[in-house]
Amino acid sequence: MRKNTLWTLFGILIVSLVWLTPFASASEFNFGVYTVIPDNQIDKQKSYFDLKMEPNQKQTLTIQLKNDTEEDVVIEPIIHSATTNINGVVEYGPTSAERDSSLPYELGDLIQTEKEITIPAKGSKDLQLNVTMPEEAFDGILAGGITLEEKKAASKNTEETTKGVSIENKYAYVVGIILQETDETVKQDLQLHDVKAGQVNARNVINATLQNPTATYLNRFEVDAKVTKKGKTEVLYKSEKQDMQMAPNSNFEYPISLNGEKFKSGTYTLHVKAKSSKESWEFEKDFTIKGEEVKQFNATDVSIEGPNYLAYLVGLLILLVAGLLLFIFYSKKKQKKQQEIN
């Protein structure tokens, strides 16, 4: 075995709002992370775990944690299967995404570790990951990671917490974990599921759920999506995106933006062309946008311009002034005629 410093690990910056004084500076990592690479590592140049294992095999992995500060540091490890986010990027840490129906095993069920570990001040501590592979053999890979985040103590000064808002920076290491048993190549597949109206960041979109039901990555993943009225050829909305990646046995909602337009009820057709570095796919699927969805989403889309009441008011004032001037003009003209008659 050898110890490999995690220079290639990325720290996830999680920004959270807390009620403190209005001044705050970004904190740094209070601990270091080192993986102990085992003999069954497929690529020993990698600093994450990329392991070849056997059915029902048990193995203990070690991550060394180092603390150079003057105080104890408490770490909360979380193990999670890889998912794909809305941007077509693979996430190895905890997310709100539900488990995909095609995922045979959740990584957190196969790997057990401590819920909390304390690294002593100016010291180090080994974190043990106990892996138990499934009894049944499988082709492909199981992908995920372990998130190592420092547990912060709650603020004791409750009076000061109401004086202002500051930004507290929390950092976490994510160590990737990939498990496989065979070298068999898994044929890639892609499926289109639900297509429906929705919103992203309070803006109207049409969400198309794309699923990778296979135990392999879809690399260099591209999507070309168009929306038409059912039975028509005119493209109403479209979206193209390249250089994405899908995690094994995962899904995500691919958004097609309406670019500030309002939803209109009716039946539409989604046309999708997608490809990875090895395969390509085409789909067509009809979907319906209902009246209640139109009302709900159009009312909350921040990019849709509402009625310009100021313009209406200015127009009304112009009409009133014009009407008043006409009234004065004809009144004076009528008065002049009466004076001429008299």
Rank of each mutant, 00 (worst) to 15 (best):
Asn249Ala: 11
Asp189Phe: 09
Ala274Gly: 12
Glu234Leu: 02
Lys229Met: 13
Leu258Asn: 06
Asn207Gln: 13
Gly198Pro: 03
Gln242Ser: 12
Thr228Met: 07
Leu190Glu: 11
Met246Thr: 11
Ile289Asn: 15
Asn212Trp: 01
Ala208Thr: 03
Ala202Leu: 08
Val205Gln: 04
Trp281Pro: 00
Glu293Phe: 10
Thr288Tyr: 13
Ala225Asp: 00
Lys295Asn: 06
Gly260Tyr: 06
Thr288Glu: 13
Ser277Pro: 01
Gly266Asp: 12
Asn201Pro: 01
Ser280Gln: 13
Thr269Asn: 07
Ser277Gly: 10
Ser257Pro: 14
Gln211Ala: 12
Val294Met: 01
Pro213Arg: 01
Gln296Thr: 13
Leu190Pro: 09
Ala208Ile: 00
Thr209Gln: 05
Tyr217Pro: 05
Lys264Phe: 02
Ile304Thr: 05
Asp243Lys: 13
Tyr237Ser: 10
Ser276Glu: 09
Leu270Gly: 15
Leu210Arg: 01
Phe283Trp: 09
Lys230Gln: 14
Asn249Gly: 05
Asn259Val: 05
Phe263Trp: 07
Met246Phe: 04
Ile304Ala: 05
Pro213Asn: 06
Glu240Asn: 15
Glu305Thr: 12
Lys273Glu: 13
Ile304Phe: 02
His193Lys: 15
Val227Lys: 12
Thr269Asp: 03
Gln245Glu: 12
Leu192Lys: 05
Trp281Arg: 02
Pro213Gly: 02
Pro255Arg: 04
Gln211Met: 08
Lys238Phe: 04
Met244Ala: 12
Pro213Thr: 01
Asp224Gln: 12
Lys196Pro: 07
Glu240His: 13
Ala215Asn: 09
Val235Pro: 11
Leu218Arg: 09
Asn249Leu: 12
Phe287Pro: 05
Phe287Leu: 05
Leu258Gly: 11
Ile206Pro: 07
His271Trp: 08
Ala202Cys: 00
Glu253Cys: 07
Thr300Pro: 01
Ala299Thr: 02
His193Gly: 05
Ile206Ala: 04
Lys285Asn: 03
Ser239Arg: 11
Lys273Arg: 15
Glu293Val: 06
Ser280His: 13
Lys295Thr: 14
Ile256Ala: 04
Leu258Glu: 04
Leu210Tyr: 02
Ala208Phe: 03
Leu218Lys: 00
Tyr268Arg: 04
Ala299Gly: 02
Asn219Ser: 09
Val272Pro: 04
Ala225Arg: 00
Asp301Ile: 03
Gln242Phe: 13
Glu234His: 04
Val195Phe: 10
Tyr217Trp: 12
Ser250Gln: 02
Ala299His: 06
Glu253Gln: 14
Thr228Pro: 07
Phe297Asn: 09
Ala215His: 00
Phe221Gly: 00
Ser257Trp: 04
Asn259Gln: 14
Lys264Asn: 10
Asn207Leu: 14
Phe252Val: 08
Ser250Tyr: 04
Ser265Ala: 15
Val205Pro: 07
Gly231Ser: 03
Leu236Lys: 10
Ala274Phe: 08
Arg203Ile: 03
Glu222Leu: 12
Phe263Lys: 13
Ala225Leu: 00
Lys273Trp: 09
Val227Ser: 04
Ala247Trp: 09
Ile206Gln: 07
Val195Asp: 11
Val272Asn: 01
Ser257Cys: 02
Gly260Thr: 03
Pro248Trp: 13
Asn298Phe: 03
Lys196Ser: 15
Phe263His: 09
Ala197His: 04
Ser277Thr: 10
Asn298Trp: 08
Lys196Gly: 05
Val205Arg: 07
Met246His: 02
